[in-house]
Design a protein around this nucleic acid. Sequence first.
RNA 1: GGGGUCGUAGUUCAGUUGGUUAGAACGCCAGCCUGUCACGUUGGAGGUCGCGGGUUCGAGCCCCGUCGGCCCCGCCA
Length: 598
Amino acid sequence: MERTHTCGELRESHVGEQVVLMGWVAKKRDFGVFTFIDLRDREGVTQIVVSSETFPDAHAKAKNLRGEFVIAVKGEVVSRAEGTHNAKLATGDIEIKVSELLILNDAKVPPFQLEVAGSENLASEDTRLKYRYLDLRRPQLQNNIRMRAKAVRAIREYFDNRGFIEIETPILLKSTPEGARDFVVPSRIHTGKFFALPQSPQILKQITMIAGFDKYYQIARCFRDEDLRADRQPEFTQLDMEMSFANREQAYREMEGMFNHVLKLIGVTLPTEWPRMTYAEAMRRYGSDKPDLRFEMELQDFSAELKDTDFAPFADVLAKDGEIKCLIVKGKADYSRKQTDELQDFVKRYGAGALAWIKIGDETTSSLLKVLGEEKIAALASTAKAEKGDAILIVAGSKSVVAASLGALRNEVARRENLIDRTKYEALIVTEFPMFEHDEATDRYTAAHHPFTSPMDEDLELFTTAVNDDSQHHLLGQVRAKAYDAVINGYECAGGSIRIHQKAIQDLNFKALGMTPESARSQFGFFLDALEYGTPPHGGFAAGIERTCMILCGTENIRDVMAFPKTASAQDLMMDSPGIVDEAQLEELGIEVSSDSE
RNA sequence: GGGGUCGUAGUUCAGUUGGUUAGAACGCCAGCCUGUCACGUUGGAGGUCGCGGGUUCGAGCCCCGUCGGCCCCGCCA
């Protein structure tokens, strides 16, 4: 028997045809003398009817069927009788009158039901991850994985059409101390030495520019041995691209062009040119470098208004160059004590000491009433342009704590109060990221993006001074980079920069990061050498394939867009990895596992 | 590394103030059923209450520890 159609394609127009379908038994409804079977394959579900009167052999076999058996059926496409059409099924106008039924394979009773009403009744995720091949049979996951394939194809299409060349770079690289923890691979031939898996193909793609390829792209697997999150896995895929002789605007255009092309897959049209916002503005207005612009609720600043306050917690914060900011929740003056307590617990995770509030109900109440007085509270409410019925939520602290806590609170409140229009797509490009981040613990500066990012021309002098004059080192915190992110619906979907193409500036940057020339040479000597052989100005970006697919599929979990994801503790429950290896294997590699690490 | 939350039948869950024989739905097994599509119907099987310890006359329930799922902080150039 040879399959003639899929389970998703037969329509009224096929009535009368002899067809052969193959697939999985999704459901059996047995009526004694005849049996209905919902036959499922990746394209859909078709109803099969087997009658004992017309084809007793087929019917006898149908009696023995159970969920997930694999069968082949031959039969005639017939129109369904009046009143028995099923509008929920694409194939619901027809059914197959079976003349021959073949059991291609039986199946054990699945450990969980694939099809249940309501996602809340779905089996727990660990059960489904253990039997990932069964979970993947669900139409929802089938669609997500296929959407991912389409997205990747659309990306290739976009860059191919624009003259980019796909170049593969090695998976076995060298470990570098910068950035995330590396996954490390022992070398058998060079006992005691290790490869590292790429955190991203950054240096190699820059070398393709030095090598004259002009425009490069790659769908690149990346590995970072860090803790997981709802949108982070230890291995993930990036669209990685780089172009020579390009400025920032040209890079923005490619980000916009690529995402706009990909978003066509779900019928979403974004403006050809996305809004641009500097990092400083994004942090000031939204407390985030990846603001979700599907809703308003901007942060407002009370620092000036409270400049002369004698309320100690506020005065202390302001004396230490901190801020007091707030956000206004429209129509939520009726927030209960319990609710504000919950929100206070929420912001405390981000280092905030407390969450103060003002509620403008029939009368104005506030957690600050006693310490600030009615008059000041009224003044604050009016500064914030809050209206009757609104709640004002206030955080005081260092600039980073205020941004982190209010930025997160803004998203949390929007989620709780259902302020997000799920049909909306809001993208922007965040520009002028800081070049460095200050590590308080070690009092050192680290690369905010990566150590190959170019400072902004306007800040070059500041940068040079900060690096060369030890007393001015703190100015590094003010240097801005030619770095940018593409943000869609509050997700950082891509990030990139114009790179340093001059050796002198690259040397300066390594110095800024506290590297001696010797350590820079031992880590990146090959790259520093390459820079000296005529490096064109260049820049590019990398886009997270999974995050992009999460937006395309409307999910908030990265596991929904990966075929074989790992758990939050970085294990694969299906194949039970990571696992131990043979003593002999270890010996060959010259590796000994210490007993206290077991 | 830290915090939160969950863990009871194959699955999703309920389980009162600590009380005698731990329930429901779906699934599964056996039968009946000529138009179902969440088929209906009759009957049945199915439990180490994650694991270990403790308190108690008595623990699914209380306490301690531990393991696992999920979420968050740190971390993620």
